[in-house]
Amino acid sequence: MKLGKPERMIINGRRLDGRGLYELRPIKMKVGVLKNADGSSYLEWGGNKILCAVHGPRELHPKHLARPDKAILRCIYSMATFSVKERKKPGPDRRSIELSKVIREALENVVFLHLFPQTVIDVYIKVLQSDGGTRCASIVAASLALADAGIPMKDLVAACAAGKVDGQIVLDLFEIEDNYGEADLPVAIVPKTGEIVLLQMDGNMTREEFEKALELAISGALKVYELQKKALYEKYGASYETKR
């Protein structure tokens, strides 16, 4: 058994941060926050603070990596050294390389890369403060920044995790639940088509629990999707309410 694990993480249907089982943490999003980037976004999701910048489509160096038929998408997920309890060594580690890969693959599903042959679109994600669920938060921020950069996409990518804590299926795990819970299931979807573009899981769930958690994560992602659209409408004029 791990030291430091709270004895109970759900008490009378409430979680340690006061949420109900199926409740999201408070989320704030803003687009167009960095002057130099072609598109950018800032996201606060519970205790997560994430900044994302998109540069491109632009000329690709080294040139031999360029594709004659489409743009390539590069994605770098990285955590600030002070974003976690014990200082994280700067530079890419194995976890962030894997996360960069799965985030990129989720985004590649929606971006119309064939419109920009020979170029690169760079997506830089910086986790300034982490509180569990950063990969979902990063995808949400990245698709906003891509939209802010005016890059054509079939839809935004929305994401949310579900998991298992104290034997119960819950939505949107925060750090303590992520560390000491029994399972974590991050899911990213293309809301318009219902496609699942990112799916990872670690921990232990039965068939029934998995089905319930998958359902719950998708419903969470759909709520996040509404917030994403709202953030874009806030910058780009037309009121969100009238456009609905």
């Binding site: 219902g194 496609e195 699942i196 573009v197 990872q200 232990n204 068939r207």
Partner: peptide, 21 residues
């Protein structure tokens, strides 16, 4: 026992919910 302990989806394609189950 038929329970699940890991999942990893890869590639730029997608899966439907029903396909996964």
């Amino acid at each position: 026992d038929g329970s699940i302990c890991a999942i990893q989806k890869g590639g730029r394609g997608s899966f439907k919910r029903e396909e996964i189950l």
